[in-house]
Write a protein that binds this DNA or RNA. Sequence first.
DNA 1: TTAATAATGCTGCACCCTTTACAAAAGGGT
DNA 2: ACCCTTTTGTAAAGGGTGCAGCATTATTAA
Lengths: 394, 394
Amino acid sequence: MTEQVTTGTLVTTGTDVTRMRELNALSIVRALRGNPPSTVTELATRTGLSRPGTDVIVQGLVADGWLTVVEPDGSSVVGRPARRYRFNAGAGHVLGVDVGAHKVLAMLADLDGTVASTSRLPVGPDADPAARLAVVDAAVDECLTAAGLSPDEIWAITVGVTGPVDASGRTTLFTPLPGWASVNPAEHLAARFSCPIQVENDCKLAALAERWQGAARDADDIVYVLAGMRTGAGLIIDGTLRRGYGGAAGEIGALRAVRWLTAPSHLENCASLPPGIDTDNAAAWVFNAARSGDKAARTAVRRYTRDLAVGTAALVLTLDPQVVILGGGFSRSADLILDHLARELARTCLRVPEIRASTLGAESVALGALRLALNEVDARLFGMGLSTPAAPRA
Amino acid sequence: MTEQVTTGTLVTTGTDVTRMRELNALSIVRALRGNPPSTVTELATRTGLSRPGTDVIVQGLVADGWLTVVEPDGSSVVGRPARRYRFNAGAGHVLGVDVGAHKVLAMLADLDGTVASTSRLPVGPDADPAARLAVVDAAVDECLTAAGLSPDEIWAITVGVTGPVDASGRTTLFTPLPGWASVNPAEHLAARFSCPIQVENDCKLAALAERWQGAARDADDIVYVLAGMRTGAGLIIDGTLRRGYGGAAGEIGALRAVRWLTAPSHLENCASLPPGIDTDNAAAWVFNAARSGDKAARTAVRRYTRDLAVGTAALVLTLDPQVVILGGGFSRSADLILDHLARELARTCLRVPEIRASTLGAESVALGALRLALNEVDARLFGMGLSTPAAPRA
DNA sequence: TTAATAATGCTGCACCCTTTACAAAAGGGT
DNA sequence: ACCCTTTTGTAAAGGGTGCAGCATTATTAA
């Protein structure tokens, strides 16, 4: 065996002149994605190709259904008005599903990531796996029918679950859902969908969402901290979601010294908490009390934040990210947390990153799932060529 | 402003038919790098190009000096023996320099990474920056003259230093070298070299070296822990060295709860240590004593390892790597450390990675510097085209 | 209606890769 | 010494692609 010097790709494949055409077509598609409808001339300058060449390729892409023509509207200057082309985002769709303890949230989006339909169904926290999967199916069905699509028009699916996800798509190491450890949601959905199906940890998906449409759009190195009744983290390094070798990246909460598991108990056990309030609303109550000056509540929040900061500091020191995003249910009370957190990090970290509160609500995990599914589609598209649009077989 | 959907590269550049030729040439070069001399037929099958086409490109590469012909030797089977071609690694060279507290180690290698010359010069730990830079110059000069090369034949240089390196190449946050915080080694060398010059943290470089030629050749997700009188870490994630947004990735030792700063003191203050032994040799003595059963020494080693494990666990839980490499001066005593370390990690981590001892000696930092310089060259080569070999201007 | 302007469409040219075909070289067998 | 096999080296034909330049078309302003 000889040594392999690797800079990037290992595969060294020669380029045919036909492949070049494909690459140029892809390059045009890329130049159009997420941009307003463009003229051929604009595309030509943007891609560096010649105008005639661009035109030919664009015609082909229109014929294959990847692009659609936007006839010129009145708003033009002097000269012959140019036809504009836009990416046909409706050529395919993706599904993102957030399987939580209390609800299943499914979202369906086109290739631009524009959400076409959403379905949120409640499920009991102690529902058995079969029941929970049935709710997943129901939510997915609702999305499909609302958007008027059939399963074979879905190009990729991502399912978000709690706990580290192994290579097979199971959460064997840990899951709060009863009986869920042995469930493989990908396998279950594969019975009805033939597209690629990924399963991913919810924190990681939320991190993706924040980078896509949330508070971290400008950053490539992100530590996302999910602060809620559970505490977790998702890491984006160099613009890519990092899963770790076994899918357990970011699980710093497992470290005993990092008191993430018990951190929320500071809130739940707050002395000034009125009796009879249920667990789910206790935290919200404490945050509100702290906001209006309650001494015990303020202490509880401070203690909670201190515990949160230990693990966050470990993540920050390990990765030196550009920005830390505070997400999860408690991020609604970021005004109370951010300052404490910043102070704690300033005390412990070499270089203190920006700290921002999440701007996405409860949909962040489902949104992240959409983004991951879109990434999957993009990888297929830009990796291989683009023939006529059709659902890729897994 | 419109939103930018990014999968990988943002730049979408069209491909010319001439550029395709370049890409094919690069593809052939890649197919030859690190492989034994190959025939045109072999290259054709390896790249997927046709044999005549491959031949033409190979002729061009030979004419430009990138490839050299190996005339067929006697060892052939039936049929006409084929000319073999090999990558002309001597077309360019790179320098790697390890600037330590007690020594400067410079290494010079060709484009295959084969070391052509080495120079190790001592320097006092309290030498001022000017004196230390003078030693750097001397070591580099020795390497050049030993290899018979002039400065303009060097294509890239990497300098390894202790402490987190910022974007400008300085170690402003921390450095053990007196007065070194404001020194910019890249600027200093730029006076004599016009090639790209990088400065990088020593732990990070050692990690690179382990992946290149050491104990982590098979892994893409690596936590490298430098265990010595100083403790540090270098991270390779998804095959790429991670610096962090401010170059401070891996500096988990800054966390108070992680007792990396004081961990070696367990060894230095070992009760059974004979008086008068100097600091530099104390650790080695303790390890030896522990190996031969000394009770106090064994305790000291166990305590040291326990402290080492805390930070390592934080890194492992954050990144979930495939393998942890134990490097640095103490890795010579890995037999005493690994078991303890593995036990501690098993206790604290969700998924325990493999733990291996470094197989590289004191040259690991300089080797890693070579690798980073080669990466720089490769990026230029494979990013842009390859004209006739010449030192790239920075 | 005419001139100006800018997009569109078409033709010829150059380049590159591939396929096909054939000549050349080396070694083994007769 | 000669022929045969095998593989390499090389040349010619064919097809696909991008580019430059020119003619054509559609629209606005005068």
